[in-house]
Design a protein around this nucleic acid. Structure first.
Length: 344
DNA sequence: AAAAACTTCAACCGCGATGGT
DNA sequence: GACCATCGCGGTTGAAGTTTT
């Protein structure tokens, strides 16, 4: 048996909103507020709409100070940096961009930002191919002129190590490939403006909140590391071993004082497979996991990077601006802190 | 000029979380 | 603790608009 519908589907109008409906909804909410009950609201106004639809319409279009389109380079950078660290949690990302809605950002990401990034990726690939071809020509030239001395490497054109092929590189770019996007984003250090200027601090007329970005995640890093260090019987080093030292191959809720859920991720499966290796995560600190993969997953040193390395790569210009993180996430952190103290 | 292909984005859907009883 | 109603979120859809062939 399925879930009960939130409204009478047969008596509810769907599709685009008319100006009259907009006006009704807007004037009512401006006068009376939502009344804390979206489901009952359309009946009060006399709208043949689902409450959820009213809520969406208000939040995304009718409420004051909403901006549509015209995303700035700074906003692009913020979206990308946050996507790196927290994935597709659009509501949190939207909370960092005054006047933007999660739906708008989601659409913008899916339709433009991804393509913009992949356009850049294509450029880089082309450049790389170009330089490889150049190197190959030089190498052949050297071989012809240096046949007698095979051990003597040309100091000016050292042989580069052969890197394992990245699957998607040899194919037509896959525009829905979250993993490749994320890799590219990380490589770009969380910014991808055409000018490639480093972003230290965003202070614009249009940005009254004086956003600093990228966000400082060192605080969360320390918190998380402390939590694991202090509560787990396994030392940090052990967490980096290939075979998990933890019972049942999971972190234990009670031992860590942190709620841990196996197999969950804010990233899609394909991405999760790469980043998380299907290992559990700390609930409430999910935003760390994109970059904390190696803190706990068993990867070889060749594959893994420490927190500092990753955070410095992704967030090269750390700004202390913890308060801009979503309130809910902070509350979760605070709650976890509290639980930890209680357990001591 | 017309059809096909592609892009955009508003709106919908279903699920998990939350709060009240 | 179970149940129910509602909220809020992220993924998806499809109509409308735009570009390409």
């Amino acid at each position: 048996m399925g879930r009960a519908p939130c409204c009478d589907k047969a008596n509810v109008k769907k599709g685009p909103w008319s100006p009259e409906e907009d006006a009704k909804l807007k004037s009512y909410i401006e006068k009376h507020g939502t009344g804390g009950n979206w489901i009952a609201l359309p009946q009060k106004i006399g709208l043949r709409r689902c409450g959820k639809s009213c809520r969406l319409r208000w939040l995304n279009y009718l409420r004051p100070n909403i901006r549509h389109g015209g995303f700035s380079e700074e906003e692009d950078n913020i979206i990308c940096s946050l996507y790196i660290s927290i994935g597709s949690r659009w509501s949190i990302i939207a909370a960092q961009l005054p006047g933007r809605t999660d739906n708008d950002i989601k659409n913008y990401w899916n339709t433009r930002l991804k393509k913009k990034l992949l356009g850049k990726q294509r450029k880089e690939q082309a450049a790389r191919r170009g330089s490889c071809q150049k190197r190959e020509i030089m190498r052949k030239g050297r071989e012809n002129s240096m046949v007698s001395d095979t051990n003597n490497q040309n100091p000016y054109w050292p042989e580069l190590p052969v890197l394992p092929p990245i699957p998607y590189l040899n194919e037509e770019p896959r525009f829905n490939d979250h993993a490749s996007i994320r890799k590219l984003l990380i490589k770009l250090g969380g910014r991808f403006s055409d000018e490639d200027q480093p972003i230290n601090k965003l202070q614009t007329v249009d940005n009254p909140t004086n956003l600093q970005f990228p966000i400082d995640i060192s605080y969360h890093q320390q918190r998380c590391e402390n939590a694991i260090n202090m509560h787990s019987s396994a030392p940090m080093d052990a967490l980096n071993t290939t075979v998990s030292p933890l019972p049942n191959n999971q972190y234990n809720i009670d031992s860590a004082g942190l709620a841990l859920l196996p197999g969950e991720s804010s990233f899609p499966d394909e991405l999760e497979g790469i980043l998380y290796d299907k290992t559990p995560r700390l609930e409430g600190l999910e935003f760390l996991y994109g970059d904390m993969v190696n803190l706990r997953s068993g990867t070889s040193c060749g594959e893994s990077m420490g927190w500092g390395e990753i955070s410095s790569l992704v967030f090269p210009h750390v700004a202390s601006n913890y308060e801009y993180l979503q309130q809910g996430t902070l509350q979760e952190c605070a709650f976890n802190d509290l639980r930890y103290r209680e357990l001591q």
